[in-house]
């Protein structure tokens, strides 16, 4: 199999040869935060690991950090350090690769768990955004003390959402913290009169009354309306 020369700011963009040699004439990158230099701008994965002190290289997984994603680099895969997207790597002792996606971008990682703060740094997630793990029906917000478990079968899918979201009550925008609310909490928030019914347009686009004891995960752009208890069969 031929070696693949790789850089890559992301999987979707054409990498640019934008990185030059340092003042010492050597090409460099960071592995686990430590600067590693090479005379040859196109080292192989095992060479990068070796230079970073990850020995024997075969016992390690090398992960390349991209702008929107991360990928594993094979031991015999050539990396072109002149290309953008080759600024930073991580080396993990082990032989398994764990996968997840964030906002549709693919990530590979070398350990089965990532603390939320590290995930936030890795994925360049701003402090005004929440990290959310997709789950059928009840997506889970990751808090600063949470750890993303990648050891389960399948690929975890995550997305980011603004911490404050804009919803509409009777078409008037309201900025509220994202999250799950009880019907009563929402009625208080929107000052819905006692006896009136709060309705919203659900994911399928149906105008739907909220059940009195119900709960709703409120999402950005959601539309709410109040139903006046009037009318009757004549």
């Amino acid at each position: 199999m031929e070696n693949v020369i790789t850089g890559g700011a992301s999987h979707n963009t054409q990498p640019q040869a934008s990185r030059g040699a340092g003042l010492d004439g050597q090409f460099f990158t960071l592995v686990n935060g430590t600067k590693v230099s090479f005379k040859d701008p196109t080292p192989k994965g095992d060479h990068i690991l070796d230079k970073a002190g990850a020995k024997p290289a075969g016992d390690y997984v090398l992960i390349q950090l991209l702008r929107h994603g991360s990928r594993s680099v094979g031991l015999d895969e050539t990396v072109d350090l002149r290309m953008e997207g080759t600024e930073e790597f991580r080396a993990f002792k082990g032989d398994r690769i764990f996968r997840f996606t964030l906002n549709g971008h693919s990530y590979e990682w070398g350990v089965n768990a990532i603390p939320e703060p590290e995930l936030r740094l890795l994925c360049h997630v701003h402090s005004d955004e929440a990290l959310v793990v997709e789950r059928d029906g009840t997506d889970i917000d990751l808090g600063p003390n949470d750890v993303l478990d990648l050891d389960k079968a399948g690929t975890e899918h995550l997305y980011t959402e603004k911490r404050l979201i804009t919803v509409f009550f009777e078409n008037d925008p309201r900025e509220i913290p994202r999250g799950t609310y009880s019907t009563q909490q929402l009625k208080q928030l929107f000052a819905v009169q006692e006896g009136y019914v709060l309705e919203y347009i659900n994911n399928e686009g149906h105008l739907m009354p909220l059940k009195p004891e119900g709960k709703l995960r409120v999402k950005d752009g959601m539309k709410f309306f109040e139903q006046v208890p009037c009318g009757g069969s004549s």
């Binding site: 078409n171 105008l207 109040e226 139903q227 208890p229």
Partner: peptide, 20 residues
């Protein structure tokens, strides 16, 4: 047959009241 939904009501509320 569904009556007594006031004419003065905003149309969004009128629609919702009729859907009752």
């Amino acid at each position: 047959s569904w009556n007594h939904v006031p004419e003065a009501m905003p149309w969004t509320k009128m629609l919702s009241a009729h859907l009752r």
